[in-house]
């Protein structure tokens, strides 16, 4: 019984670590701020959730205590990480960070112009940000 639970928590923690590693690769590989933010918020948040879930399962089975702090941390990360990504991306757009050359849609620009705010020119640089 205990072995099964240990395996489950170990697998959860490993899956979370793999997700975080994938997120880090995305941060290095993706070409512009918006795509990198996409990689950083989603998979990193999921990775942290898996790791915290693994820790929760382990302490539940090993010590028999339900650690509400871990559950609260899961809820907290799940709530805040997307909003942080959203604010990050919006601040980048407002300050005129250029999009990748392959970008084809920019709905936010239309919305900004409808609201009467001049949108910064973020579209389609000729050569585009360099891939590292």
């Amino acid at each position: 019984m205990a072995t099964i639970v240990e395996w489950i928590s170990a697998l959860l923690a490993l899956a979370g670590a793999v997700f975080c590693a994938i997120s880090a690769f995305g941060l290095i590989r993706l070409p512009d701020v918006y795509l990198r933010s996409h990689a950083a918020t989603k998979s990193a948040a999921l990775g942290v959730l898996f790791i915290l879930g693994g820790a929760f399962v382990y302490f539940w089975a090993a010590d028999g205590e339900i650690d509400v702090k871990l559950l609260l941390a899961i809820v907290f990360v799940f709530l805040t990480s997307p909003v942080a990504g959203h604010l990050n991306g919006r601040a980048a757009y407002r300050s005129g960070v250029k999009m990748w050359t392959g970008s084809v849609r920019d709905d936010f620009k239309d919305v900004l112009e409808q609201a009467g705010t001049p949108a910064p020119d973020t579209t389609l640089e000729k050569e585009g940000p360099k891939r590292p």
Binding site: F76, L79, V83, H86, T117
Partner: peptide, 20 residues
């Protein structure tokens, strides 16, 4: 910008403030 554009931050803050 209109104030309504902070709607994500404001609504999540309402929940998160109580958690914190």
């Amino acid at each position: 910008m209109p104030r309504g554009s902070d709607i994500f931050l404001q609504n999540i803050s309402k929940i998160v403030v109580f958690i914190v």
